[in-house]
Design a protein around this nucleic acid. Structure first.
Lengths: 122, 122
DNA sequence: TTAGGTACTATAAATAATGTAAGTAATGAG
DNA sequence: CTCATTACTTACATTATTTATAGTACCTAA
């Protein structure tokens, strides 16, 4: 997060991969540490900054801000500011953001079966 | 890759998230920079180290090794060594590894539509 | 004896992502 | 005037991931 050096080999690699494989492209977009949690919560409806912050224990305000900004950049969520004091800002999935639902559900299914395989005790 | 400090907040966060949300758990496993490309190639059948290396331009041998080890650890691929000279090692998806197919396909679908949305010129 | 192929390993350095802690603006309530 | 509330921002520190470069073991074939 925060910085990407467009001259790095790393950047070039990511670009090349994303260019060829849509699935890698997708994973680079939603692969952030907190991205999926945020989207999962938003699947249930719009939420304010503070609500997200409470629902996601462990995330710092800085990280939440950064991730939300990134998601907004990628048109996955929309941000609505209400001119009130104290301020109110609501985040909501866009159409393409909402379309992540099937991806998330597949990940969920796979994740569960993988977990069962690795740790059958549960 | 390579090192994880089990005392860091970051580590704790990942653990907690993975614990609660199977989809986050899954994305932490397959979210590596090269993971999905490797799996995608292996969906078509077993491949040798050198073959993967050729099919994935840009990846260094070190990275390929690390990713393959990680995938093996997670039981997503299996590794078969043939006692020959020069050596031959084959990698193949396990059952749960092959089950990633539906995840990958959903990612692919979403990735394509997202790309179209962002850059409709193509 | 030397060169060559295969699948790695070792070490160091560069990049990127995340965390910590403090501070800001606006304004209405008291 | 002071405090509380909300959604951030900023500067800096730490941790994690990725790249670069070189080298290893093994046997075989020339």
């Amino acid at each position: 997060m925060s910085e990407i050096k467009q001259s790095s080999t790393n950047f070039a690699n990511k670009l090349a991969l994303s260019d060829e494989c849509p699935e890698v492209y997708a994973s680079h977009i939603i692969g952030g540490q907190w991205t999926l949690v945020i989207c999962s919560w938003l699947l249930n409806g719009k939420l304010r900054f503070g609500e997200l912050s409470k629902k996601i224990p462990g995330i710092t305000e800085r990280m939440l801000t950064l991730q939300l900004r990134k998601l907004e950049e990628h048109k996955i969520i929309s941000r609505t500011v209400y001119a009130e004091v104290p301020p109110r800002v609501e985040y909501e999935l866009t159409e393409i953001g909402y379309a992540l639902k099937s991806v998330i559900m597949e990940l969920e299914v796979w994740g569960k079966s993988h977990k069962d395989l690795i740790d059958p005790s549960v």
